[in-house]
């Protein structure tokens, strides 16, 4: 069971780079990379809010719950 992050896909859809998102939300590229690569252990509501605001998306567009690699809910 794990939470997977699909930030790269949302960034691709919006045509935005990680550097640009970093500047807009005020989170370092290093921290966004941790989030993007799925190494993050936790995400603050304030960070999630800022990311969703800039990418004009819902938290569910970025975070997915997977049961042993099998997505429970997948919004394409």
């Amino acid at each position: 069971m794990s939470i997977s992050v699909k930030l790269d896909r949302v960034l691709l859809d919006r045509g935005m780079s990680l550097t640009e998102l970093s500047e807009r939300v005020g989170v370092t590229i290093a921290n966004l990379s941790i989030l993007k690569t799925g190494k993050a252990k936790a995400i603050r509501f304030s960070t999630l809010e800022a990311i969703c605001k800039e990418l004009k998306c819902q938290p569910g567009d970025i975070l997915f719950f997977e049961d042993d690699g099998k997505p429970i809910r997948h919004d394409d």
Binding site: V27, N31, L32, I34, L35, K41, A42, I43, R44, T47
Partner: peptide
């Protein structure tokens, strides 16, 4: 500390 470091 690890959790703190990996919190974004």
């Amino acid at each position: 500390k690890e959790e703190q470091d990996l919190t974004v």
